[in-house]
Amino acid sequence: MNRRDFFKKAFSLMAVAGISSITKSTPLFAAEKDSENIKTPDLIAVKNGTPEKMFDEGIKAFGGMEKFIRKGQTVVVKPNIAWIANPEGAADTNPALVKRIVEHCFGAGASRVYVFDHTCDDSITTYRVSGIEKAAKEARATVVQANKESYYQEVRVPGAHTLKNVKVHELILESDVFINVPILKHHGSTRMTCALKNLMGVVWDRGYYHRTDLERCIAEFPLYRKPDLTIVDAYNILTDGPRSRSLKDVVRKNMQLLSKDMVALDVASSKILGEEVENIKYIKIGHDLGIGNSNLEELNIKRITL
């Protein structure tokens, strides 16, 4: 724990130093960047491409996966693999996107890349039918189960009011870099599942969430750990979810969002989904807790059209 914290701090300090050196750097350095924003964007939105292509472009705009992963680090990629559904059903994250993310992680020098989700349906079948197990393995990722309590360890959530303690998958505790890859969907009770809601898949007792103020628990979890990067898959979105019951509910939006700020991502995603931000309670709670910023006007958004 201590060592990891040290590395994280050291790394973020280095990143800050790097950014500040760029901002005050010579015109020659800035001229190399064709974009008008010299600062790294807060949120990157990409559209009109395949999930892989959109990710390639999106992560490039961030300065590559190297900005997030240093050589030899372990990475955990957490897609949404909740339901037994084909990729067309849009209930689970696009497998091709997961594969491309894993490839970028290894490209940046990651020593190991883990992929898992605490599924709602039978785990082994869901991993197989979603296509994610196969895709991730093709990119040499280690696919890990999360369907038994012994994978989880109890942690304290600092500053939480409702979710004081939570059992978290051991890989979230152990891995150096945490990448969250939700798929944007309508959700029957929280109205939308995206960046923040996707993190319910790293905890054991979801019944506790449901029993004890669902939205507040969702918003409080990142007080324990925030993903280092969140990639929202809005290529195909499900307008009557979270479970895929009919292909008629799937709409192709051809979009992808990347950011470190899950609250900002959820606000932007709610607009793609066409859901009122005020109706999604966890966004406001997350903003108030300082998990992220829900005022998109205050953010530096880079929009890329392919």
Partner: peptide, 29 residues
């Protein structure tokens, strides 16, 4: 849970494969 605690839940509707259980507006949000 919704009736007793006045908090959202919806675990049953989310897992229902046939839409036999769905959510309807109750109080406020």
């Amino acid at each position: 849970v919704v009736y007793r605690n006045n908090t959202n839940c919806g675990a049953c509707a989310e897992i229902c494969p046939t839409a036999a259980v769905t959510m309807k507006p109750y109080k406020g949000l």
